[in-house]
Amino acid sequence: MNRNIDFSTIISYIYIVFVSILIFIPFMISFWRSLWTPDGQLGLSNYFSMAGVFWPRVWLSLQLSLITVVLDLIIAIPAAYALTRYEFRGKRPILLTLIGVWYVPGIAYALSLILSFYLIYKQCLSILGFIVTYTTGFLPMMLLSSIVAFRRLEISYEEAAACLGATGLKRFIYIVLPLIGPGITSGILLTFVLSFNEFITAFLLAGPTGILTAPVKVFDDISHAGMLGFVAAEASILQIISLTVIFVYLKIVGTRYLKGTVFF
């Protein structure tokens, strides 16, 4: 009996290590490559050489991701609340419209969106174009995870709070928001990571606006310079930032909301 348990545990660990290696090997290789200069020296000089040009791009991408997360939260939470708590005419078409972006190829949608905003508002030639396209593009991520969270939230908690004298806003702040943590957490993390690393929309916008986000800058450098050490350094920085933000977020918010969904 014990032998069986031990054997399955060993297999589980081997599997986890194997999958981890698969995930981490590309990162380790690019990181290792980033430590070597063109003249064969080992060190951090690649990081210093590209810093002046690349860090402003990273800062821009970070800002865009954070703005996207905040705007998507502001839009998705009330929308998800209304879609789960109230019955009204046209509910399903509205939901389909909100998540419709997922049903078309990314590049086609990005192009259509950029053209629309350019033709209607003449705005895609600025940072506003990035914000609008990112926010719209990643809304389904936040919306669907919020809808799941609201569906799991028993209405009786809100009713109990109402009977105890809590107004609608207070119920939302003290009861609803803390209890929909799981949905918000996964939605925030996915929206942040995916928008920080977003390439298609950013690439299409880069031409008319001349604004390069960090992932597009990496692509641009690979196209022009090949896989040199400083390009590997740029790729490593993007990966390190993504992982660091997730780590810090989970440290602050806690991992309890991800139990059962992620190996923690």
């Binding site: 028993e154 009786s156 908690y157 009713e159 109990a160 109402a162 009977c163 105890l164 004298g165 809590a166 107004t167």
Partner: peptide, 14 residues
């Protein structure tokens, strides 16, 4: 309900 000054004990524990 929040202005009625009632105490409601629910079937599903709340």
């Amino acid at each position: 309900p929040h202005k009625r000054n009632i105490g409601f004990v629910f079937q599903k524990v709340a």
